[in-house]
Design a protein around this nucleic acid. Structure first.
Length: 153
DNA sequence: GGCGCCGTCTTCT
DNA sequence: AGAAGACGGCGCC
């Protein structure tokens, strides 16, 4: 096996996952303008671990995360993504708090930018990074995604 | 509480 | 170099 793809087809668009040598490299989410209802509305999905993981997330269930590839990014982005991985299901952390945690106090805004360029949303849970005041902040695939994910995990 | 301004750090032109 | 961004804090209604 070398390169392959996985997918989850939903009523709100298709989620695609790319893998290299069995490791997840990219996950693309359809941009959502408005919040999808619950249940999410899954129409079909590929028969593999990556799709199963996503289906579980969209069903409010827990699942083991399939292995990720060593994603390419700047040193700063890698630091941010690694820190984001340690935020567990049901937890949240502020952009500024995460910045301080990785030894970059004051880089809250830069942390946001790094989260925004996370190539594997859902696998690296950048939706758990929120505003200092408890607000949602932004989300590359649309804030409705972020709100929905946080409410269903 | 809401809004605007400025400070901060990283990334793209 | 300059501009822009998934932010934070503070001052001011």
């Amino acid at each position: 096996m070398c390169c392959d793809t996985a997918f989850v087809e939903t009523r709100w668009g298709r989620i695609t996952v790319e893998r290299v040598a069995g490791r997840v490299t990219v996950c693309s989410l359809p941009f959502l303008e408005k919040e999808p209802p619950t249940p999410f509305g899954i129409l079909a999905y590929s028969d593999d671990a990556a799709a199963a993981y996503i289906v579980a997330m969209l069903s409010g269930r827990q699942a083991d995360r399939p292995p990720l590839a060593e994603v390419a990014g700047t040193a700063f982005q890698c630091r941010v993504w690694r820190a984001v991985e340690t935020v567990k299901r049901g937890q949240k952390e502020g952009y500024g708090a995460l910045a301080r945690r990785i030894g970059a106090p004051g880089a809250a805004r830069a942390v946001g930018a790094a989260c925004g360029s996370n190539p594997v949303p859902l696998f690296v849970p950048c939706h758990r990074i929120v505003t200092a005041k408890g607000g949602l902040g932004g989300y590359a695939a649309g804030v409705p995604w972020k709100r929905w994910l946080l409410e269903h995990e």
